[in-house]
């Protein structure tokens, strides 16, 4: 076995690797997860302020209304939605729904499309456009 392992090809040039869409959906799952993790202090702080007192609620509104925070929240909104949709896809794959190549590709397209569409709709609300 160790001999076999040594002969495995190793190709790690990130700029030359062409991932299938499901591969991108998967790496975005990781990126969105770490993004949500890193921004947890901000989210819990906002949650805290939104519930403590009417005065702190006003503070929550002021901070959440700042353009820079809105931009971060927009990123986190996409992160949440992508993580949510991809999570459902993973749960379905776990119970052997859509594991053939064609269905797995279609579901990764669906994850990307639905999460981006919902980000656009909810993000427009967040930014006060719609």
């Amino acid at each position: 076995m160790p001999d076999l392992a040594k002969q495995r090809p190793k190709f790690l040039n990130l700029f030359a690797i062409r991932l299938p869409l499901a591969g991108y959906a998967s790496i975005f799952h990781r990126v969105s997860g770490i993004g949500l993790f890193l921004m947890l202090p901000l989210l819990i702080w906002l949650f805290d302020k939104s519930l403590s007192t009417p005065e702190s609620y006003a503070q929550f509104q002021a901070v959440a209304g700042h353009w820079l925070i809105k931009l971060i929240l927009l990123g986190l909104l996409w992160s949440f939605l992508h993580h949510f949709c991809m999570g459902i896809r993973i749960l379905l794959l776990d119970i052997h729904v859509g594991i053939d190549k064609v269905s797995a590709h279609k579901s990764s397209v669906a994850v990307m499309a639905v999460s981006l569409l919902l980000t656009a709709i909810l993000g427009a609300k967040l930014l006060g456009i719609a």
Binding site: L40, P41, I44, F47, D48, L51, S52
Partner: peptide, 17 residues
């Protein structure tokens, strides 16, 4: 350590409601 702290922080937000 961070996650245990976050959990405590978030739980006390709902606990005092």
């Amino acid at each position: 350590v961070a996650l245990v702290g976050y959990a405590g922080w978030a739980i006390q937000v709902i606990w005092r409601l």
